[in-house]
Design a protein around this nucleic acid. Structure first.
Lengths: 210, 210
DNA sequence: CGATTTAGTACCGAGTGGATACTAAGTCAA
DNA sequence: TTGACTTAGTATCCACTCGGTACTAAATCG
């Protein structure tokens, strides 16, 4: 499953299902090829079949099976989430398109489950993996970065706090370039340059979801 | 894969491998049965084959495959982590035993990967799922609870902070019973009784592992 | 009884995080 | 040209969190 930040929302890539299918759209998929390829290889291959380039981040979300069989007559699906940079076009041709997760097309039950798991997985890993940085070009403004974070997390962030935490973690490095984008004050460009890492062993958070 | 808190360490249940095998111990596993059983059903069945009771918490950690085939001639393994209460004995008979994760027996490469993923998964979910509570009997002391958390997290916690956060989250309820355990002051017994849930929408943490 | 062990609390000081408000620097339209 | 508007970035304040230290409480052991 491929996601990208699109227009202030997280979007999922769907491909048009074959005519006989119950639903009109589906997640990109394929049967596993010869067994000497890793699962990840296969995931990359599926992604490239629907996109001009490979995803910049990829992670398995798990194996899914239900009573019924998948349209393709398989009874086990191994799902991956891949993230692709902002502005990546849905494949050449008209067989694929981005849809915001909040207003998805009707999908088969198993595919719904895969989408939910994928979104949750992205949000869980976000604090530990540099996903957001890879979705942006090599240099970016802090507002860009914050926007990507907000889209991935699913809610807005406090500007000053975001920057404080960001600089405190020594993750970005200022360049001497500025970008003026329509109206408003120009923004300084930064690049991703992680430095030290303080091993903050926090306590338990007890943020229980009931 | 089954884990339990054992003697201040997290322990994994291994079963004795058949004589011809390369390694002497292995994770419990089985071939998938008829396709009308869910993956979770199968996981529970595997767990019960090695334990007197079913795990109190179960979660899939993913699908694993590598070039080589699994001893059982399968090329895809769907792995689960299950947690069982403190004090659960390894199965009747001598075919299974608990081993601390820090000093595991030699395992096949794929099984090593499964163990790592499982431990990581438990620790990631710990803040959001009531795993620790299910590993304890219905009433327990706060020291018991903290001990379980420490074992699952893998490091020590500050006593006062732990209790402050715990009470702040309204997760436990005091009973009027006290338990005296050898030497030292008796401890009050508590039960798990989650109440309100404050939707603490935190910012980003940037705890990047590089 | 005193030493020891475990449970539980109080206090303090450093650090965090969010709200508000401010300044800076650009565009746009009258 | 000037003033309204927009976006970028900073400063200050306050409430809260977290972890260290130190304390009290209540049991056992000698």
């Amino acid at each position: 499953m491929l996601v990208t930040p699109l227009d202030r929302h997280l979007a999922v890539l769907l491909v048009r299902a074959p005519d006989g299918a119950l639903e009109r759209w589906a997640l990109p998929w394929s049967l596993s090829e010869r067994s000497d390829a890793t699962l990840e290889d296969t995931a990359v291959r599926v992604a490239r079949s629907a996109l001009p380039s490979a995803p910049v981040w990829l992670e398995q979300t798990g194996a899914f099976a239900d009573g019924r069989r998948h349209p393709g007559d398989v009874d086990l699906s191994v799902a991956f989430v891949g993230a692709v940079p902002v502005g990546t076009l849905s494949a050449p041709g008209e067989d694929a398109a981005w849809f915001p997760v909040s207003e998805l097309q009707p999908l088969a039950p198993r595919q719904r489950a895969i989408v939910s798991a994928a979104v949750e997985s992205v949000r869980l890993r976000l604090d530990y993996a540099p996903v957001a940085f890879r979705l942006l070009p090599p240099t970016f403004t802090l507002s860009d970065l914050q926007r990507v974070y907000e889209i991935l997390i699913g809610h807005r962030l406090h500007k000053a706090s975001f920057r404080r935490a960001l600089h405190g973690a020594s993750l970005v490095e200022a360049t001497d370039e500025w970008r003026s984008e329509g109206r408003g004050r120009p923004a300084q460009l930064f690049r991703h340059a992680p430095k030290r890492r303080r091993a903050r062993r926090r306590g338990v958070r007890f943020d229980l979801l009931p």
